[in-house]
Design a binder for these strands. Structure first.
Lengths: 342, 342
DNA sequence: GCCCTATACTTGACCGGTTCAGTTGAACGG
DNA sequence: CCGTTCAACTGAACCGGTCAAGTATAGGGC
């Protein structure tokens, strides 16, 4: 079964290729009657545009790219990335835009991927995730002239549009929640400092602790994995004055800590309160359920995808500010020391 | 910065377009000296083939497709899908083949996606996941003439190559493990029966129970989600003769049951033993850690991707049998009733 | 010295769309 | 009744590769 082309349709309708193209793309240049006839024939023949031909002549790929620069282990555990993909798809699906996805191990490969995708006209633009400090990607995209949108940016990125969040306020509320429960020794297990958002939150944490507790608090760096989070947590608890509450920078580390410590005899939230930055089904799955900031990753990713599509069609796009995140208080945070003598 | 084309290279090298094409594709027709020169110029110009032009003229898209027909909720929780993607990418990356990914809500959309992808020459072939009973996809692919590979097939699928597993033996070992621990009332929470592998396992479970326990056991159907699994589990435990062990058809349901029941006072494994079909980091994250069949999803997906690539280049491919799965015994299964008086 | 055959190229058609410069013919104004 | 205008459509170039067919040149055999 040969795929029908617009030439086949043209012949069947007794018109030229050009007329068929106009008709199928909803442009002026054909009468309503002819258009209807052409559409009917196309439908009947089961015509679908050749994305290759279209990309070649109109210089559009009708696809956007997403690169996952995470370790396979983290990809397999953290629900985050899949939710991003689902959200993007929600927006893209039905608009005829495809999603090109790849995972990479190192930065050089990642940059090369963007370059090849763009120069090879595989994508019309890309979505950027997990911005790093001194991230080379915005400069690369600018150099290439490739449209890009940054997801969950903590700051502006020159020519790239972005969905913006303000973790400053959220951090104040997180520390406020814990200090309001009476906690005075609050620690934080952060993500890698090379990630812009992790580094920002570290600064915000310092500020929040100074203003709400009047003293700096301990922060340790981890890698967002269950194992890394556990090592960091054990380090914190082995200190002379161990914290009574810990803020984890993602769900996986918080959940890992809760399940591991619980089975090791640490009572949560009595002995230790736990707060996770990004909520996810994981936080509800573990006992006690973990207090976390709601984070509608899918919606956010969808917004970023819409931004990119807007950028592609109109040429410009304004940053979108995401609303303040709500703290979902669950069982892993409680007043300090309560029922300690249970 | 205009993208260089082979014509630019041809001019710079003082040869024709055709010669450049031969040189860049490693075909005979140019001398070693000319080839080296052309390659050097291409490299220097940062040339990358236009995937559109290549696809149009050579009828290859250099891309394969994967459709996720799962609910957003399940996608966000279950690590399975992301591990599949990672495994596929592992194989595809570096071979110049891209992965097109989409999520769909219903079967009609899914079928339409394959059709559009194929007729629109977006992909050279597709990977099939989660085969359903009376699955319409193999027939569609055959009709379209599109190469496809089935991942984790429980049976052969005519023209489609597949990675095959044998759950029959695994089910015998699962039931054997529990009956060996003294369990006599073993129940199973299955996935949707419309999924081929869930339905197969249900049959195998019946067979295993008859041969090892001498009696049929209860099975209830759920939907692989945390909520669905919990509802099913509570139903089982409310029966007159509740089971002392439950085999869950995936990790999410098992883990949800473990954490929910534990916090409700049910002691696991003492009051109830829990076994999950597919192992994942989730199973290790929860306490007690869940006994499960190891499942190297990434490796399996990688094998399927290799099969598809082989099919695309050689035209045929033989089914690949995946080795027997090992049961990872953890803390959620123990001899029946032991330490019940703790 | 001549024919034959490789080898190393060139030429140009082709893939399936898009798009722009024409062409045709009908309607309209004066 | 003729010139103008505009909608409707045609024809062909073009996007950037691939590839079959054709050409030129060198080298080998006799």
């Amino acid at each position: 079964m040969k795929r029908p082309t617009i030439l086949d349709i043209a012949r069947a309708a007794g018109v030229s290729k050009g007329a068929v193209s106009y008709a199928l793309n909803g442009r002026p240049g054909v009468s309503a009657a002819t258009r209807a006839k052409i559409l009917a024939i196309a439908e009947e023949m089961g015509w679908v545009p050749s994305s290759a031909a279209r990309a070649l002549s109109s210089d559009r790929a009708d696809a956007v790219g997403l690169v996952a620069a995470r370790t396979p282990e983290l990809l397999a555990t953290e629900p985050y990335f899949m939710r991003v993909v689902a959200g993007i798809e929600e927006t893209l699906a039905g608009r005829g835009t495809a999603l090109l996805l790849t995972t990479v191990r190192d930065e050089a490969t990642e940059l090369d991927t963007y370059r090849r995708w763009w120069i090879g006209r595989r994508v019309d633009g890309v979505l950027l995730l997990d911005m790093r400090t001194d991230d080379p990607r915005p400069a690369l995209l600018t150099e290439l002239g490739a449209p890009g949108v940054v997801m969950g940016a903590q700051r502006g990125y020159g020519g790239l549009a972005s969905t913006r969040v303000d973790d400053h306020d959220a951090m104040l509320r997180a520390v406020g929640h814990l200090s309001g429960l009476g906690h005075r020794r609050i620690a934080r297990v952060s993500g890698p400092q090379r990630l812009e958002h992790a580094a920002r939150r570290s600064r915000y944490f310092d500020e929040a602790c100074r203003s709400l507790l009047g003293a700096e608090q301990v922060q340790v760096e981890a890698d967002y994995t269950a194992h890394g989070g556990l090592v960091a947590t054990r380090g914190l608890l082995a200190r002379p004055n161990p914290p009574t509450a810990i803020i984890f920078d993602n769900d996986v580390m918080a959940v890992a800590a809760v399940s591991e410590l619980t089975s090791a005899g640490v009572r949560i939230p009595t002995d230790l309160a736990v707060l996770a930055w990004d909520d996810s089904p994981l936080c509800e799955l573990v006992r006690p359920a973990v207090t976390a900031f709601e984070h509608d990753v899918s919606a956010e990713a969808g917004a970023a995808a819409r931004l990119l599509l807007a950028r592609l069609t109109t040429g410009t796009a304004e940053d979108v500010w995401l609303g303040p995140r709500q703290l979902r208080v669950r069982d892993s945070t409680a007043p300090v020391g309560v029922t300690r003598s249970a």
